[in-house]
Design a protein around this nucleic acid. Structure first.
Lengths: 213, 213
DNA sequence: GTCTATACATAGATAGAC
DNA sequence: GTCTATCTATGTATAGAC
């Protein structure tokens, strides 16, 4: 394993486990078992290293899940996969890492670029699933899969942050969310008549956007 | 305005605008226009000041919205209020501040306490609305308002983080979310027969929890 | 490519004058 | 209560030996 590679992995780990604020050149180098100066030799700056590490590790993580996403056919399946992803990635730290990157990105444009890259990478997967899953639903054509996918991904990151703050409450939140999938799924099997009725209700309710004054 | 008070406000502002990593005793004191040593005189440590500032500012923010939450009667209204809150608080920085606190909380137990306090404060408001709004819905009794409220609040924070990373995409995500409210609202007006049908579908689908092997 | 050594900025925190 | 001055630790980054 090359030093460059070790630094990438160490930076990703430092972000996930120690957080953005503690991801210094010294702590990353120590984690990688190499000298601190090599951070600057290989990547120029800590920000550059973090940027590279996020892109690298997000590519790896998404690759691992690409097949799983492709198998999803229903919304509850998507939520089940989300729950599984939540559990696995809590150990591996990929999503926690993203949360840290997004927090750091609030003031660092370079990290913001990495965060955009990461969210897009995950969202593209979710979007493909949503487009497939919602095609036969009364919601089809009314909801933009791209926007919904971003909402799902961003919301998921919020939940991941919450997980570290209050594990029990976060678990209760995940449980409650599973109902949304059940709800959408229940709409699927309504039959053509009820389906059309539901759809017309949705269209009528959706057009005049809700505005409060 | 007392020095103590100025420090609280400055700490809240530093968190929201400069981020957790940049919220140092010196930068906060500069923002408050007081000497750096006063942070330690009044609060003992930076972590203690941040903790106090978060609790103080969350109490203020929630107070501002208490009445508005109490007026909400439907899910689309809740989402509309959420959108408005998103817009106003982006300027005031209360939710961005929470995002920073949650990011910092990943490794700092004291900040984790503040984060729990903050999420609970918002969630209690959301929970009351959800309990009221869902009472007449086919979902009543199936979804735990407490868990759902936490999911909404945590997800909202994720969206707020996303806002700084990719404003256009975040706006698209908010738009897509508004459909969820419309969806639930459309279920409300289905009439008693369809309502019961929907409810039985939900109950059947919900009981045997979706598990993938 | 990797190391040691070091320059320099900024962090948290405290002592003591006022 | 507030200030100046200072200690100490840690951060980024670079120069130069190997």
């Amino acid at each position: 394993m090359s030093t460059r590679h070790r630094l990438l992995a160490a930076a990703a780990g430092a972000l996930a486990e120690d957080g953005f604020a503690a991801a210094s050149a010294r702590s990353i180098a120590a984690r990688a078992g190499v000298n601190q100066a090599l951070v600057f030799y290989h990547f120029g700056s800590v920000a550059d290293l973090l940027d590279a590490a996020v892109r690298w590790s997000v590519d790896e993580a998404v690759d691992d899940y690409r097949r799983r996403f492709a198998e999803v056919r229903t919304l509850p399946e998507l939520l089940a996969l989300g729950g599984e992803l939540h559990a696995t990635e809590k150990e591996r730290g990929h999503v926690a890492q993203m949360a840290q990157v997004m927090a750091g990105a609030q003031r660092d444009p370079r990290l913001a670029g990495a965060a955009r890259y990461a969210i897009d990478a995950w969202s593209v997967q979710v979007e493909a699933v949503l487009a497939r899953v919602l095609a036969t639903s009364p919601m089809s054509g009314l909801v933009a899969p791209a926007g919904m996918a971003r909402a799902v991904t961003a919301g998921f990151i919020g939940l991941q942050l919450y997980e570290a703050v209050d594990p029990e409450a976060a678990a209760a939140a995940m449980d409650a969310l599973s109902l949304l999938g059940v709800l959408a799924q229940a709409m699927e099997g309504l039959g053509p008549v009820a389906n059309r009725a539901m759809r017309s209700r949705l269209e009528r309710a959706h057009r005049p956007r809700v505005t409060r004054t």
